[in-house]
Design a protein around this nucleic acid. Structure first.
Lengths: 119, 119
DNA sequence: GCAATATATATAGCAATACATAGTACATGG
DNA sequence: CCATGTACTATGTATTGCTATATATATTGC
């Protein structure tokens, strides 16, 4: 089996950096699509390309920070069976933040693409 | 004169995080467009939306790191007048890394956009 | 001639965030 | 009873953009 090359490791490190910021936006978008609980969010994101190895330890702290920043609300719900679940709902402030993040992300993409024409 | 709101500060902080990773890709793209020296790169990026306040202290360390990682080469050129300039040229390894970064960036955008459909 | 400004490059320290890892608790199945 | 799945929490580490500052040379205006 072919092991990882130096290039793979460099790109993995880069991806980790590139996700800073992006990941909060991604989670906000996910919650914006409909109220959800933590484990459910982790499980659904694991189906997205590139996130197969996503760990809970990556997701829960961001959800906590988003709650602290007022971007989402969190509510414990006791299930008939199983552990209680913490459901997250986006707030107006969170929806506004998400819109602005998307705009910035789009602009960053445009700035990137513009680098090829200004040699 | 209207000052910044909390929302502005939160977004500014977020932008700083969102630029991690992205900024290296941006500089690689800039150098990929044609060999350039540091001050010139700073000056041209300052015309890009969102980068009006870009500082040299942000750019030179990333150029240094890219050289150290073998993504670009650097070459001092003495000008007839003025201080000597350090010119940067992308390497094959840098071009390959840029292509992969772009692919990841595109995929991240797709994953983000997909969050609206999976409620 | 000197001060201010522009051009040109460099560096240290800090703040913030994704990630890895480990832990706790409850339910289920063999 | 143990392993696994479900569900959430805590902590330390690594890394990078940003701020602030420094140094050097050339040009311009008084």
């Amino acid at each position: 089996m072919v092991g990882k090359t130096d290039n793979d490791d460099v790109l993995e490190r880069w991806i980790s950096q590139a996700r800073k910021g992006y990941f909060e936006m991604l989670l906000l978008a996910r919650v914006s699509a409909g109220r959800a609980y933590g484990y459910q969010i982790v499980a659904s994101l694991k189906h997205a390309p590139g996130f197969e190895n996503l760990a809970e330890g990556t997701v829960y702290p961001v959800l906590s920070r988003m709650k602290k920043d007022g971007l989402v609300t969190a509510e414990w719900v006791a299930e008939e069976t199983g552990a209680p679940r913490k459901y997250y709902t986006i707030t107006d402030r969170g929806a506004a933040a998400l819109a602005r993040m998307r705009a910035v992300w789009t602009r960053m993409g445009e700035v990137l693409d513009a680098q090829g024409d200004t040699a």
